[in-house]
């Protein structure tokens, strides 16, 4: 068994996606910790055109897996093609970023291989050569140490931001590129994907807002959103929301902040009654200052808060609005 770390490079429409570089950084670190080598694998019809970009990072090689059956992403195509690569190369670890695409096919791939897949990790620890993976459970309320049992290959995906793109080591010279034909035929693809599209143009562009007041489940009822709106008005900001609020129709979808909504980075982000599940955090953790008001001191939102108030938002916000208005008047 070679101690190879295979890194999955995601592409979309002929472009390497940004999370790919985080997966490369993770793969390079795992290889360093386990005395292994890194191989980057990219799939697609025409994937060899992407190989030079990938060959610039330090690795022992780039593998471009080509087939007309991979011209568009499908879970069947990707799982079959990658399973064949993994069966022939027998890597120790296969590393992914935890993207929507990876969520769609990696569990299938792991099941086909009979391998373990630890998904959505925040990182790992090296316990004397044994890797212990860390992931969140109970929506971020707790962390868990998770270890593989059984035989490699071991599959692991890392949450966005767990590794930094700028930690990727570049190679002194371009890594060797090899192109192989994928072991997959068009007849094996059982789903037909359409074009990517966006719903009617987003009416509100929260990415430009300097102040955002966002509400979560803690706001309790749609009529209470007025209170948040008053605070946003006092601060000259926009109103935003976590996913459940938009799911419930309390605010339109274009106000949603998080992995499936907008990613924002205002000067001030006020989180009212938002617990701060990771899907929300990825949309707002770039904010310069975060004020979180929540009744649960253990809420994950306090992990990313600059200022925190533990208590009832309905008691805290009204006097806050008054004081802001006073400060502005003075």
């Amino acid at each position: 068994m070679s101690a190879e770390v295979l890194v999955f490079a995601e592409q979309q429409g002929g472009k390497i996606t940004r999370p790919t570089w985080e997966a490369v950084a993770a793969g390079q670190k795992i290889a360093a910790d386990t005395g292994g080598t890194v191989t980057v694998v990219v799939l697609g019809a025409g994937s060899s055109a992407l190989a030079p970009e990938l060959a610039a990072v330090e690795s022992s090689g780039v593998l471009a897996v080509e087939s007309p059956a991979l011209s568009e992403y499908t879970p069947d195509g990707y799982a079959l093609a990658l399973a064949a690569v993994i069966r022939s190369r027998q890597p120790q670890y296969v590393v992914f970023s935890h993207t929507y695409q990876v969520r769609d096919f990696a569990p299938k791939l792991a099941a086909a291989l009979g391998s373990g897949f630890i998904s959505d990790c925040l990182g790992y620890r090296n316990d004397g050569g044994r890797l212990v993976f860390v992931r969140q459970v109970f929506q971020g309320k707790f962390s868990a140490d998770v270890e593989f049992t059984g035989e490699p290959p071991y599959l692991a995906s890392f949450q966005a931001g767990s590794f930094r793109e700028d930690a990727v080591r570049r190679g002194a010279a371009a890594a060797p590129v090899s192109t192989v034909a994928a072991e997959v035929t068009p007849e094996q693809i059982r789903s037909k994907p359409g074009e990517r599209f966006r719903e009617a143009k987003q009416a509100v562009d929260l990415t430009q807002a300097e102040v955002i007041v966002a509400v979560g489940r803690g706001i309790k009822a749609p009529e209470n959103i007025d209170l948040a709106r008053k605070l946003a008005d006092a601060l000259g900001g926009e109103i935003g929301a976590s996913r459940p609020i938009c799911d419930g129709g309390w605010l339109p979808m274009d106000r949603q902040i998080g992995s499936s909504g907008q990613t924002v980075a205002p000067k001030l982000y006020v989180a009212l009654g938002i617990s701060g599940a990771i899907q929300h955090q990825v949309g707002m953790k770039g904010s310069r200052a975060v004020l979180a008001i929540n009744k649960d001191r253990e809420a994950p939102i306090f992990e990313v808060a600059t200022y925190g108030v533990v208590g009832d938002l309905f008691e805290i916000v009204p006097p806050l609005i008054e004081e802001i208005q006073k400060a502005k008047a003075g």
Partner: peptide, 30 residues
């Protein structure tokens, strides 16, 4: 194929400044 060996409260990474109590006092500090 995988096992949980330990579950724990996440280490606090941020240095959140907490304000206790409520009312005008906290509002003024904020």
């Amino acid at each position: 194929r995988q096992k949980f060996t330990r579950v724990y409260v996440p280490e606090k990474r941020s240095k959140t400044e907490f304000f206790e109590g409520g009312g005008k006092d906290v509002a003024a500090k904020l």
